[in-house]
């Protein structure tokens, strides 16, 4: 006799909590083969607003941690993900309809990606910063700093790896993130929020929205308290309009990318969401 499974309710992840959409809306998520998987929350503009507020509130704490500490927190995500590997393999396979081997490979790569980016936390500033030999009696140094709140439209055709590939680099420097998951394959991303919630990532550092990117993205792109927007997964949206919205407050924008190499791991994905600050100080013996 087979046991009747207990299905999970998939919710949003905002400010370290798991609320339903304030709109009360859900949408049906199906597997690649068309069978019902779950109802996911369909986030509204107000959920996006709440997520931005939560992200803003978390900036000070997250960016104020030491780089070493941030690296360890990101590495801890990899550790926890590794422990729930089987669950994610199954969810990715269900969502994407790929073989277990391919799903396993994707989950492993996602885990490794956290490890790779975790290692950058206390190094990127050394690579992207400089001591500047100015012509005068000054100490002068340039350091990259987090830009603040980053909104991300995650790749839409990858349930976990694309999501992680877009999320992890934005966190490295100390930004906080509001990320819109793949609309059709959101469940692994929501499960990842459970990993984040039980890891050492402070609440509000990562906020995950599910639903329609076309509906949510314009609110994020035009939100004055968002500092940057990664449109990597917005290729099917009217992303030019989003970029124009983002220009209103001079947000930093990353353009859409398509294909399996979207959000490929690169230092430039970290530095894209940093600001170079140059500090001068006088030098005098007398």
């Amino acid at each position: 006799m087979t046991r009747l499974a207990v299905p999970k309710t998939y919710k949003l992840y905002i400010g370290g909590k798991f609320p339903r959409s304030e709109s009360g809306r859900v949408y049906e998520v199906a597997s690649a083969s068309g069978s019902f998987l779950a109802n996911a929350a369909q986030a509204s503009r107000k959920d996006a607003r709440d997520a931005v507020a939560a992200a803003r509130a978390a900036v000070g704490g997250w960016s104020g941690t030491t780089a070493y500490n941030r690296g360890q927190v990101l590495y801890r995500i990899a550790e926890l993900l590794e422990g729930r590997r089987a669950q994610f393999v199954s969810e990715v396979a269900d969502a994407e309809g790929v073989t277990t081997a391919a799903a396993t490979a994707q989950v492993d790569t996602a885990i490794d990606r956290w490890v790779w980016y975790a290692g950058w936390a206390d190094k990127y500033a050394q690579v992207a910063g400089n001591g500047n030999p100015v012509a005068g009696p000054y100490f002068n140094i340039s350091v990259p700093e987090p830009t603040g709140v980053v909104a991300v439209i995650a790749p839409q055709d990858s349930s976990l790896l694309g999501f992680v590939s877009a999320l992890a680099p934005a966190l490295v420097a100390g930004n906080t993130v509001v990320i819109v998951a793949s609309q059709s394959m959101p469940l692994p991303a929501i499960s990842l929020s459970e990993v984040l919630a039980t890891s050492d990532v402070p609440g509000g550092v990562v906020n995950i929205l599910t639903g329609s990117p076309a509906e949510i993205a314009p609110w994020l792109a035009s939100h004055a308290d968002v500092n940057a927007i990664d449109l990597v997964g917005a290729g099917d949206l009217d992303w030019v309009a989003l970029q124009i919205d983002a220009a209103e407050t001079l947000k930093r924008v990353l353009a859409p990318e398509n294909g399996p190499d979207a959000a490929a791991p690169a230092l430039s994905r970290i530095t894209a969401f940093t600001e170079t600050k140059t500090v001068w100080h006088t030098k005098g013996l007398l």
């Binding site: 994407e96 790929v98 490979a105 492993d108 790569t109 490794d112 399996p260 190499d261």
Partner: peptide
């Protein structure tokens, strides 16, 4: 694993 993932995808 990344290469494998691409193949799978």
């Amino acid at each position: 694993s990344q290469k494998a993932a691409r193949k799978g995808a």
